[in-house]
Amino acid sequence: MALRAAILRHVRVPVQTLSLTAPKSIPWGSFLRSMSSHGDDHLSKEEVIERVLSVVKDFPKVDPSKVTPDVHFQKDLGLDSLDNVEIVMALEEEFKLEIPDKEADKIDSLSLAIEYIHNHPMAS
């Protein structure tokens, strides 16, 4: 018995194998995602650009082939000031925002829309 105890005390389980197999069993991907969305879930500029482009292209009076990230709604797309209001309202719905009149009146181009939405903390 004394001999067995002595042997057991000296046996070392190789710790290495544990650390090698462990990562495979933990869903790191979802763990990291949940951590990142808990903190800063701000939209990336690329995503804002893509979604703004698609809202404007879907606007009935707009020729989608003319829509690029630097077009002016009225000068380049032939829209009027009422269309401009409708586009900004459609962007509000897309990004779940409410844009005050004072700001909305200034948004007359795609680049200004992208800038405003990208800088808005509540855009989602």
């Binding site: 009027d80 000031s81 401009n84 209001v85």
Partner: peptide, 28 residues
């Protein structure tokens, strides 16, 4: 007249604001 990219007059802003208000009310 509908403005095309020119700066908006106070009255035009009021009209656009009214239009916006109507579209907001329609959402509900």
């Amino acid at each position: 007249g509908i403005s095309r990219g020119a700066r908006l007059s106070g009255m035009q802003k009021q009209v656009l604001s009214l239009y916006r208000g109507f579209l907001r009310a329609a959402r509900s």
